[in-house]
Computed example of a mutant assay.
Amino acid sequence: MSQHEPTDFLYPFIDGHEDNPESLLADLAASAQEKAAESLALRRCTLEANAGLLDAAASEMARRFAAGGRMFTFGNGGSCTDSTTLARLFARPPIGKPFPAWSLTADQAILTALGNDVGFELVFARQLIARAQAGDIAIAMSTSGNSPNLLAALTEARQRGLYTIGFAGYDGGALADNPTVDACFIVRSQSVHRIQEAQALLGYQLWLAVHKKSGDHDLGVA
């Protein structure tokens, strides 16, 4: 980072030219503790606020998995990696039975081909057209809730009889109160970092709840 790139939006005490190493370390430790406490509080209130919706979504997902349904996840940027992690958790869990789940961001050839040939806004919708069927599940992960390619994919998914789930931050954006979204988990924060941390926990709790609804005794949650 050059000297012209300020870091005060993250660590204001660093750009304050702190000359005392011990004081600087103390400030760094206090900042880390504050962020950890903020993250913990947000995750707790997010789980509480979404408890009923999470239970309902898990019930529907378990029902669809039992009937042969599959899960497709997708997102952009950091949400791309989060959606891939969620799909992997369902498909290759550390314990318990696997569920059929795929990330629509995993194949670079498909993403770049669709982005080049039909436009980035349709990179997920076109994959659902080719792969999804009624009874499947579509999960879109976002911080803003406003990504056009996610909205296009969820619209396509709903038309094809998929159960649609959205993860969003802030006030939910366009995913909130959207007729094409069956369940929308909203993390009410203005921090992208905190939003994604809470979404990761929501995804994990959703996975646990689906196992519970499916009667998986291996996890001790039946």
Rank of each mutant, 00 (worst) to 15 (best):
M1R: 14
D8S: 14
F9H: 13
Y11S: 15
P12F: 04
F13Y: 15
I14K: 10
D19A: 10
S23G: 11
L25R: 14
L25G: 14
L25Q: 11
L28H: 13
S31W: 11
E34S: 14
A36H: 15
A36T: 14
A37N: 15
A41E: 10
R43T: 15
C45Y: 15
T46K: 01
E48H: 00
N50I: 03
G52I: 00
A58K: 00
R63E: 08
R64T: 08
A66E: 10
A67C: 10
G69L: 05
G69S: 04
R70S: 07
M71T: 06
F72L: 02
F74S: 07
G75D: 11
N76M: 08
N76Y: 13
G77Y: 11
G78Y: 03
C80F: 10
D82Q: 07
T84K: 04
T85L: 12
A87Q: 00
F90I: 03
R92C: 07
P93V: 01
P93H: 05
P94C: 01
G96D: 10
K97C: 15
K97G: 15
K97M: 15
S103Y: 02
L104W: 07
D107F: 11
D107P: 01
I110F: 13
A113P: 01
G115M: 05
G115Y: 09
D117S: 03
F120K: 13
E121K: 06
F124M: 06
A125S: 12
R126W: 03
L128S: 08
L128I: 09
A130W: 04
A132Y: 05
Q133K: 09
A134E: 12
G135M: 00
I139G: 03
A140L: 10
M141T: 15
S144K: 01
G145L: 02
L154S: 11
L154V: 13
E156C: 15
R158P: 13
R160S: 09
G161N: 09
G161M: 08
G161W: 03
Y163T: 12
G166D: 02
G169C: 01
G169A: 05
G169K: 02
Y170D: 09
A176K: 10
D177G: 08
D182H: 00
A183N: 09
A183Q: 03
C184D: 07
V187H: 00
V187P: 01
S189A: 03
Q190H: 14
V192C: 06
V192D: 12
H193L: 00
Q196K: 02
E197I: 05
E197S: 04
Q199R: 04
L202K: 03
G203P: 02
L206D: 07
W207Y: 08
W207S: 04
L208K: 06
A209Q: 11
K212T: 14
K212L: 08
G220M: 05
A222P: 05
